[in-house]
Protein backbone atom coordinates (compact mmCIF):
# COMPACT_ATOMS: atom_id res chain seq x y z
CA UNK A 1 0.00 0.00 0.00
CA UNK A 2 1.33 3.43 -0.93
CA UNK A 3 -0.07 6.66 0.52
CA UNK A 4 -0.73 9.75 -1.61
CA UNK A 5 -1.88 12.93 0.09
CA UNK A 6 -4.83 14.91 -1.26
CA UNK A 7 -2.78 18.11 -0.85
CA UNK A 8 -0.24 16.76 -3.37
CA UNK A 9 -3.03 15.92 -5.79
CA UNK A 10 -4.50 19.44 -5.50
CA UNK A 11 -1.10 21.08 -6.01
CA UNK A 12 -0.37 19.00 -9.12
CA UNK A 13 -3.78 19.62 -10.71
CA UNK A 14 -3.42 23.36 -10.01
CA UNK A 15 -0.07 23.44 -11.83
CA UNK A 16 -1.33 21.25 -14.67
CA UNK A 17 -4.25 23.63 -15.38
CA UNK A 18 -1.80 26.48 -15.93
CA UNK A 19 0.78 24.45 -17.84
CA UNK A 20 -1.82 23.06 -20.24
CA UNK A 21 -3.29 26.49 -20.98
CA UNK A 22 0.02 28.32 -21.60
CA UNK A 23 2.00 25.72 -23.53
CA UNK A 24 1.21 22.96 -26.01
CA UNK A 25 2.91 19.57 -25.90
CA UNK A 26 6.09 19.22 -28.03
CA UNK A 27 4.34 16.99 -30.59
CA UNK A 28 1.52 19.53 -31.13
CA UNK A 29 4.11 22.30 -31.63
CA UNK A 30 5.88 20.12 -34.21
CA UNK A 31 2.63 19.43 -36.08
CA UNK A 32 1.96 23.16 -36.35
CA UNK A 33 5.50 23.89 -37.58
CA UNK A 34 5.26 21.13 -40.19
CA UNK A 35 1.95 22.59 -41.35
CA UNK A 36 3.55 26.01 -41.81
CA UNK A 37 6.27 24.52 -43.97
CA UNK A 38 3.75 22.77 -46.22
CA UNK A 39 0.85 25.22 -46.43
CA UNK A 40 0.27 26.79 -49.84
CA UNK A 41 -3.01 28.63 -49.19
CA UNK A 42 -2.29 32.37 -48.94
CA UNK A 43 -4.68 33.17 -46.11
CA UNK A 44 -4.04 29.72 -44.67
CA UNK A 45 -0.34 30.41 -44.28
CA UNK A 46 -0.99 33.87 -42.84
CA UNK A 47 -3.22 32.28 -40.20
CA UNK A 48 -0.68 29.57 -39.33
CA UNK A 49 1.93 32.29 -38.87
CA UNK A 50 -0.41 34.11 -36.48
CA UNK A 51 -0.95 30.88 -34.53
CA UNK A 52 2.79 30.33 -34.23
CA UNK A 53 3.32 33.90 -33.02
CA UNK A 54 0.40 33.49 -30.59
CA UNK A 55 1.98 30.36 -29.13
CA UNK A 56 5.24 32.19 -28.43
CA UNK A 57 3.50 35.11 -26.72
CA UNK A 58 1.36 32.76 -24.59
CA UNK A 59 4.36 30.81 -23.38
CA UNK A 60 6.61 33.80 -22.75
CA UNK A 61 4.00 35.92 -20.99
CA UNK A 62 1.99 33.11 -19.37
CA UNK A 63 -1.24 34.18 -21.07
CA UNK A 64 -3.76 31.54 -22.09
CA UNK A 65 -3.15 30.39 -25.68
CA UNK A 66 -6.91 30.70 -26.27
CA UNK A 67 -9.46 32.63 -24.21
CA UNK A 68 -11.60 29.49 -24.10
CA UNK A 69 -9.57 27.78 -21.40
CA UNK A 70 -12.08 24.97 -21.50
CA UNK A 71 -13.92 22.66 -19.19
CA UNK A 72 -11.38 20.61 -17.25
CA UNK A 73 -11.57 16.96 -18.26
CA UNK A 74 -9.48 14.72 -15.99
CA UNK A 75 -8.58 11.10 -16.67
CA UNK A 76 -7.68 9.41 -13.39
CA UNK A 77 -5.89 6.06 -13.39
CA UNK A 78 -5.77 5.01 -9.77
CA UNK A 79 -3.55 2.09 -8.80
CA UNK A 80 -5.47 -0.34 -6.59
CA UNK A 81 -2.63 -0.33 -4.07
CA UNK A 82 -2.88 3.43 -3.46
CA UNK A 83 -4.34 4.85 -0.27
CA UNK A 84 -5.59 8.44 -0.58
CA UNK A 85 -4.98 10.34 2.65
CA UNK A 86 -6.59 13.60 3.72
CA UNK A 87 -10.10 13.49 2.27
CA UNK A 88 -11.91 12.85 -0.98
CA UNK A 89 -9.99 12.32 -4.21
CA UNK A 90 -12.69 14.08 -6.23
CA UNK A 91 -12.67 17.12 -3.95
CA UNK A 92 -8.85 17.27 -4.11
CA UNK A 93 -9.05 17.40 -7.91
CA UNK A 94 -11.86 20.00 -7.94
CA UNK A 95 -9.84 22.15 -5.52
CA UNK A 96 -6.87 21.90 -7.89
CA UNK A 97 -9.04 23.06 -10.79
CA UNK A 98 -10.44 25.90 -8.66
CA UNK A 99 -6.96 27.11 -7.67
CA UNK A 100 -5.44 26.61 -11.11
CA UNK A 101 -8.11 28.63 -12.92
CA UNK A 102 -8.12 31.37 -10.28
CA UNK A 103 -4.36 31.75 -9.80
CA UNK A 104 -3.59 31.19 -13.49
CA UNK A 105 -5.87 33.97 -14.79
CA UNK A 106 -7.87 31.41 -16.76
CA UNK A 107 -11.47 31.88 -17.83
CA UNK A 108 -14.31 30.55 -15.73
CA UNK A 109 -16.50 28.94 -18.37
CA UNK A 110 -18.70 26.50 -16.42
CA UNK A 111 -22.39 26.98 -15.62
CA UNK A 112 -24.01 25.09 -12.73
CA UNK A 113 -27.07 23.97 -14.64
CA UNK A 114 -27.34 23.46 -18.42
CA UNK A 115 -30.74 25.20 -18.59
CA UNK A 116 -30.53 27.79 -15.79
CA UNK A 117 -26.95 28.70 -16.76
CA UNK A 118 -25.48 30.45 -13.75
CA UNK A 119 -21.67 30.58 -13.87
CA UNK A 120 -20.07 28.70 -10.97
CA UNK A 121 -17.34 31.33 -10.87
CA UNK A 122 -14.40 28.95 -10.42
CA UNK A 123 -14.58 26.65 -13.46
CA UNK A 124 -15.64 23.68 -11.35
CA UNK A 125 -16.84 21.05 -11.58
CA UNK A 126 -14.56 19.32 -14.03
CA UNK A 127 -15.48 16.11 -15.85
CA UNK A 128 -13.74 13.28 -14.01
CA UNK A 129 -13.17 9.83 -15.54
CA UNK A 130 -11.93 7.14 -13.15
CA UNK A 131 -10.18 3.91 -13.93
CA UNK A 132 -8.88 1.46 -11.33
CA UNK A 133 -5.64 -0.14 -12.51
CA UNK A 134 -3.02 -2.47 -11.02
CA UNK A 135 -0.08 -0.94 -9.17
CA UNK A 136 0.61 1.75 -6.58
CA UNK A 137 0.69 4.91 -8.68
CA UNK A 138 -1.81 7.61 -9.56
CA UNK A 139 -1.77 8.83 -13.17
CA UNK A 140 -3.53 12.10 -13.83
CA UNK A 141 -4.20 13.49 -17.31
CA UNK A 142 -5.76 16.92 -17.52
CA UNK A 143 -7.30 18.00 -20.83
CA UNK A 144 -9.02 21.40 -20.76
CA UNK A 145 -11.57 21.18 -23.59
CA UNK A 146 -12.76 24.21 -25.53
CA UNK A 147 -16.33 24.20 -26.80
CA UNK A 148 -16.00 25.76 -30.26
CA UNK A 149 -14.78 22.37 -31.39
CA UNK A 150 -16.65 20.31 -28.78
CA UNK A 151 -19.93 21.60 -30.24
CA UNK A 152 -19.01 20.17 -33.65
CA UNK A 153 -18.43 16.62 -32.34
CA UNK A 154 -20.78 13.77 -33.29
CA UNK A 155 -21.74 10.17 -32.58
CA UNK A 156 -23.02 7.78 -35.25
CA UNK A 157 -24.51 4.40 -34.38
CA UNK A 158 -23.53 2.59 -37.58
CA UNK A 159 -24.57 -0.88 -38.65
CA UNK A 160 -21.97 -3.67 -38.80
CA UNK A 161 -22.60 -3.81 -42.58
CA UNK A 162 -21.39 -0.18 -42.88
CA UNK A 163 -17.90 -1.44 -42.01
CA UNK A 164 -14.73 0.57 -42.35
CA UNK A 165 -16.13 2.62 -45.25
CA UNK A 166 -18.98 3.73 -43.01
CA UNK A 167 -16.47 4.79 -40.37
CA UNK A 168 -14.48 6.82 -42.89
CA UNK A 169 -17.63 8.53 -44.11
CA UNK A 170 -18.73 9.39 -40.56
CA UNK A 171 -15.37 11.00 -39.77
CA UNK A 172 -15.11 12.96 -43.04
CA UNK A 173 -18.69 14.16 -42.65
CA UNK A 174 -18.11 15.37 -39.08
CA UNK A 175 -15.01 17.33 -40.16
CA UNK A 176 -16.77 18.80 -43.21
CA UNK A 177 -19.72 19.97 -41.15
CA UNK A 178 -17.40 21.41 -38.50
CA UNK A 179 -15.61 23.52 -41.12
CA UNK A 180 -14.53 26.95 -39.87
CA UNK A 181 -16.51 26.68 -36.60
CA UNK A 182 -14.06 24.29 -34.96
CA UNK A 183 -11.01 26.55 -35.43
CA UNK A 184 -9.10 24.42 -37.93
CA UNK A 185 -6.47 23.05 -38.16
CA UNK A 186 -8.07 20.49 -35.91
CA UNK A 187 -7.08 17.31 -34.14
CA UNK A 188 -9.65 14.57 -34.68
CA UNK A 189 -10.25 12.04 -31.91
CA UNK A 190 -12.21 8.97 -32.98
CA UNK A 191 -13.69 6.19 -30.85
CA UNK A 192 -14.87 3.04 -32.59
CA UNK A 193 -16.75 0.23 -30.84
CA UNK A 194 -17.99 -0.29 -27.29
CA UNK A 195 -21.38 1.19 -26.46
CA UNK A 196 -22.90 4.64 -26.99
CA UNK A 197 -21.03 6.22 -24.06
CA UNK A 198 -17.87 4.11 -24.37
CA UNK A 199 -17.11 5.25 -27.91
CA UNK A 200 -17.52 8.90 -26.86
CA UNK A 201 -15.10 8.32 -23.99
CA UNK A 202 -12.60 6.68 -26.37
CA UNK A 203 -12.83 9.60 -28.80
CA UNK A 204 -12.03 12.04 -25.99
CA UNK A 205 -9.19 9.88 -24.71
CA UNK A 206 -7.77 9.59 -28.24
CA UNK A 207 -7.19 13.36 -28.23
CA UNK A 208 -4.75 12.98 -25.33
CA UNK A 209 -2.52 10.53 -27.18
CA UNK A 210 0.83 11.80 -28.46
CA UNK A 211 0.35 12.57 -32.18
CA UNK A 212 3.83 11.14 -32.91
CA UNK A 213 2.55 7.69 -31.99
CA UNK A 214 0.12 5.98 -34.36
CA UNK A 215 -2.21 3.25 -33.09
CA UNK A 216 -0.43 -0.03 -32.31
CA UNK A 217 -3.10 -1.92 -34.27
CA UNK A 218 -1.80 -1.99 -37.88
CA UNK A 219 -5.12 -1.48 -39.71
CA UNK A 220 -6.07 1.34 -37.31
CA UNK A 221 -2.73 3.09 -37.88
CA UNK A 222 -3.39 2.87 -41.64
CA UNK A 223 -6.88 4.25 -41.14
CA UNK A 224 -5.47 7.19 -39.15
CA UNK A 225 -3.05 8.02 -41.96
CA UNK A 226 -5.66 7.66 -44.70
CA UNK A 227 -8.23 9.80 -42.89
CA UNK A 228 -5.68 12.53 -42.20
CA UNK A 229 -4.80 12.62 -45.90
CA UNK A 230 -8.43 12.71 -47.01
CA UNK A 231 -9.39 15.39 -44.47
CA UNK A 232 -6.54 17.56 -45.72
CA UNK A 233 -7.83 17.19 -49.26
CA UNK A 234 -11.11 18.84 -48.28
CA UNK A 235 -9.43 22.23 -48.68
CA UNK A 236 -11.06 23.76 -45.57
CA UNK A 237 -7.66 24.93 -44.35
CA UNK A 238 -6.58 27.09 -41.39
CA UNK A 239 -9.45 29.21 -40.08
CA UNK A 240 -11.67 27.58 -42.73
CA UNK A 241 -10.30 30.00 -45.32
CA UNK A 242 -8.77 27.50 -47.70
CA UNK A 243 -5.59 25.46 -47.50
CA UNK A 244 -3.92 22.09 -47.11
CA UNK A 245 -3.99 22.06 -43.33
CA UNK A 246 -7.46 21.14 -42.12
CA UNK A 247 -6.30 18.58 -39.53
CA UNK A 248 -2.96 18.10 -37.79
CA UNK A 249 -3.66 14.54 -36.66
CA UNK A 250 -6.28 11.80 -36.49
CA UNK A 251 -6.09 9.60 -33.40
CA UNK A 252 -8.30 6.52 -33.20
CA UNK A 253 -9.06 4.24 -30.24
CA UNK A 254 -11.08 1.03 -30.56
CA UNK A 255 -12.89 -1.33 -28.19
CA UNK A 256 -14.83 -4.60 -28.57
CA UNK A 257 -18.49 -4.08 -29.39
CA UNK A 258 -21.82 -5.92 -29.73
CA UNK A 259 -22.67 -8.22 -32.68
CA UNK A 260 -25.41 -5.76 -33.69
CA UNK A 261 -23.48 -2.53 -33.55
CA UNK A 262 -20.70 -0.26 -34.81
CA UNK A 263 -20.68 2.93 -32.74
CA UNK A 264 -18.39 5.72 -33.97
CA UNK A 265 -17.72 8.92 -32.06
CA UNK A 266 -15.84 11.86 -33.54
CA UNK A 267 -14.54 14.31 -30.95
CA UNK A 268 -13.11 17.34 -32.66
CA UNK A 269 -10.48 19.52 -31.02
CA UNK A 270 -9.02 22.74 -32.36
CA UNK A 271 -5.27 23.22 -32.81
CA UNK A 272 -5.12 24.13 -29.11
CA UNK A 273 -5.20 20.44 -28.19
CA UNK A 274 -4.21 20.75 -24.54
CA UNK A 275 -3.29 17.84 -22.34
CA UNK A 276 -0.81 17.30 -19.53
CA UNK A 277 -0.06 14.01 -17.77
CA UNK A 278 1.63 13.49 -14.41
CA UNK A 279 2.41 10.34 -12.50
CA UNK A 280 2.17 10.59 -8.73
Amino acid sequence: MRTIKTTDITRNIREMCMEANYTLSPDMKRRLEEAREQESGTLGLQILNQLSENMKIAEAEQIAICQDTGMAVVFIELGQEVYIEGGSLAEAIEEGIRQGYQDGFLRKSVVRDPILRENTGDNTPGVLHYEIVPGDQLKLTLAPKGFGSENMSRISMLKPADGIEGVKQAVIEAVSLAGPNACPPMVVGVGIGGTFEKCAFLAKKALTRNTDEPSNIPYVAELEAELLKRINQLGIGPGGLGGKTTALAVNIETYPTHIAGLPVAVNICCHVNRHVTRML
Binding site: I47, M55, A58, I63, A64, G239, H271
Partner: peptide, 13 residues
Amino acid sequence: FAAVGGAGALLSK
Protein backbone atom coordinates in the same frame (compact mmCIF):
# COMPACT_ATOMS: atom_id res chain seq x y z
CA PHE B 1 -15.37 39.76 -40.02
CA ALA B 2 -13.47 36.72 -38.76
CA ALA B 3 -10.59 37.00 -36.33
CA VAL B 4 -8.26 34.02 -36.05
CA GLY B 5 -9.69 31.47 -33.63
CA GLY B 6 -7.19 30.35 -31.03
CA ALA B 7 -4.91 33.37 -31.35
CA GLY B 8 -6.19 35.10 -28.21
CA ALA B 9 -2.80 35.99 -26.74
CA LEU B 10 -1.72 37.68 -29.97
CA LEU B 11 -5.03 39.52 -30.48
CA SER B 12 -4.95 40.86 -26.90
CA LYS B 13 -1.98 43.00 -27.91
